[in-house]
């Protein structure tokens, strides 16, 4: 097998894990399935698109040719994507979490509400931008890094490193900060948390913004290799959801492992001649169904058991 395929698989795994972790984390801390994750993905893609339309000429005029051009562009557009994802996360919080969180059947009702947000956003974008596909500027250039036997495209390297950095930073923050502690307390015993002065209404906001910015990151990374349209969020949403299920809802490590497996599976299926690209989705899905039939709680449960 070609070593570059490993890089390709890692690249896919990175993007999938960004989507899956966002869904998984939100389920475990707040108890809602965010169906508007795909909408967040598209919204941050489009806001990056608009921002790049503004920024690229300005930057080209002032910094073209200098060494600063790429870092400044990457930094500014990434922060636009993260910020817009976070803002959209806050909007989901206002519409689907705040009015619903202490009502009966919160899990199902928030799922429905976020689904509605997803539909509305996609249709709104269709209305205002039209169904035409858009291409975001290539942020990282077209070069390759040759390293041992690997030949890594810049955007692949940036995807893998960026994802690792973002997820690592997030996990670190979650483990060490006060908000992370309070969120874990909230997950385990909501009433006890309320008696410790932890308000779920206040603590859910940063989590939603964080998961939103993860979707934003996924959007900017995926748009390096593919085009963007208002309906582009559906497939990442479904893949993120199924991978989150595969990893066991609520388990971040499981989601990462699941993303890695699915990424490798996708690459292998694409390589086998009699299967090819068109069976990728089907095989992934069948694989996930089989794993879930054997282990209804996904891979996350498996990890917990081996740890014991």
């Amino acid at each position: 097998m070609d070593l570059n395929l490993i890089i390709y698989a890692l690249n896919l795994a990175a993007i999938y894990s960004l989507m899956a972790i966002g869904i998984s984390l939100l389920w475990s801390s707040v108890g809602m399935i965010n169906m508007a994750h795909g909408a967040t993905f598209v919204v941050s893609g489009y806001s990056t698109f608009i921002a790049s339309g503004w920024l690229v000429p300005i930057l080209k005029a002032s910094l073209a040719g200098t060494a600063f051009y790429t870092p400044v562009l990457v930094f500014s557009l990434t922060s636009v994507a993260l910020l817009s994802g976070a803002i959209f996360g806050a909007i989901i919080y206002l519409i689907a979490f705040l009015p619903l969180h202490d009502k009966p059947n919160f899990a199902i009702r928030s799922l429905i509400a976020t689904l509605a947000i997803n539909i509305a956003t996609v249709q709104f974008l269709l209305w205002s931008f039209g169904p035409r596909q858009k291409a975001l500027p290539k942020l990282f250039g077209f070069g390759r890094i040759d390293f041992l036997d690997f030949s890594i495209r810049y955007d692949q390297a940036a995807t893998i490193i960026g994802t690792l950095l973002l997820v690592g930073f997030m996990l670190l923050w979650f483990r060490n900060s006060r908000i992370g502690l309070e969120i874990r307390a909230m997950m385990q015993n909501p009433e006890g948390a309320a008696l410790s002065g932890i308000s779920i209404r206040r603590r859910a906001l940063p989590v939603m913004m964080l998961t939103g910015s993860l979707a934003g990151m996924a959007a900017i990374l995926l748009s390096q290799t593919s085009f963007f349209s208002p309906t582009a969020g559906a497939l990442p949403l479904i893949k993120g959801l199924t991978i989150a299920l595969l990893g066991g809802l609520g388990s971040v490590a499981g989601a990462m492992l699941g993303a890695l497996i699915i990424g490798i599976l996708e690459v292998i299926t694409g390589e086998i001649s009699f299967l090819g690209q068109r069976y990728v989705l089907l095989i992934q899905f069948v694989f996930i169904v089989i794993v879930l039939i054997i282990r209804p709680r996904g891979l996350g449960g498996l990890l917990d058991e081996t740890r014991k």
């Binding site: 009015p99 619903l100 009502k103 009702r109 509605a116 539909i119 269709l126 209305w127």
Partner: peptide
Amino acid sequence: GPMRIVIIAIVMILVTTYAS
């Protein structure tokens, strides 16, 4: 056009928010 789907989504959100 597409805005009527947005209206349906808004009705959906209102119904889930207020009716169990």
